[in-house]
Simulated scan of single mutants.
Amino acid sequence: MNQPQTPEYPRWAEKYISLVGDNVITTLAAQATDFPNFMRGLQAKADYAYAPGKWTIKELLGHMIDTERVLVYRLMCIARGEKASLPGFDEDNYVAHAHFSQSELADLAEEFGLLRKANLFLIKSLNKEELNRKGVANDLEISVRAIVFVLAGHVIHHQKIIEERYL
């Protein structure tokens, strides 16, 4: 699958899309196993935040799970021809109202992996017309294909943050 072109996505998506090569399905599939394994290795730092007011490792992983769900909901709605504008979400508010600190890091890692594997069934089922379909989320136009790339890039982005700031 080729990378989406600039008219297919809002400016915020560029930082994620630019991190992903053309073989996005392979990247998504590898992340379903590799990223949870990476996270399980951080058990000793599960409740660590690199600065006051920043998320802990558990909260960061919880954010990634929430984001995966929101983005795939948008992807499905747009692929199915939804014309209504889909709502945005405040990731800080979502994390604040979740209970990620009460979860085990290994359980969150497992949840992410299973969620990604399930989402891959939907993504792989989409045809070219559906992948190119555009819709509106958070008052901004985006294509299904762009969301697929954002999903992969979001994991790459946060793994880099973990490696640079938490380890």
Rank of each mutant, 00 (worst) to 15 (best):
L108V: 03
H157G: 11
I162N: 05
D66E: 08
S85C: 04
S103Y: 00
L71E: 00
G81M: 12
A152I: 10
N138E: 05
N119T: 03
R74C: 01
N132F: 08
G153E: 00
V95E: 01
G135R: 07
A96H: 14
D66F: 12
G62Y: 01
L126Y: 14
L105S: 09
V72P: 07
V148D: 03
F100Y: 15
L131T: 11
A109D: 07
H157I: 06
S85L: 02
K134I: 03
N119L: 03
H63K: 02
R74Y: 11
F89C: 07
Q102L: 14
L105G: 00
M76I: 13
I65Y: 00
M76Q: 14
A98S: 15
R165V: 05
N127T: 04
L108D: 00
N119H: 13
E163H: 07
V148H: 05
C77D: 02
Q159V: 13
A109S: 11
H154M: 01
H99L: 05
A98Y: 05
R116S: 12
D66R: 02
L60M: 15
F121R: 14
G135H: 00
L86V: 01
V95T: 09
K83E: 12
E130F: 09
E141M: 13
G113M: 05
L75C: 04
T67P: 00
V148G: 02
F89S: 08
A98G: 15
K117E: 08
L60R: 02
Q102D: 14
A106C: 06
D92H: 09
D107W: 05
V136Q: 11
K134F: 06
E104L: 06
G88P: 06
F112K: 02
I161R: 09
H99W: 05
G153W: 01
K134R: 10
V155K: 11
A84S: 15
D90W: 03
I147A: 03
L86E: 11
A84K: 15
D107P: 06
E130W: 12
N138F: 01
M76V: 10
R165M: 01
S125C: 08
H154G: 06
E68I: 10
F100C: 03
L61M: 13
S125Q: 10
L151T: 06
N132Q: 15
E68C: 13
G153T: 06
N93F: 08
A109F: 02
D107L: 08
G81P: 13
L75A: 04
F89Y: 15
R74V: 08
K117W: 02
N132D: 07
N127V: 06
E164I: 07
E91P: 01
L114A: 11
K83H: 11
Y94A: 08
S101M: 14
S103M: 09
H63I: 08
N119V: 05
E163S: 12
K124F: 00
H97A: 01
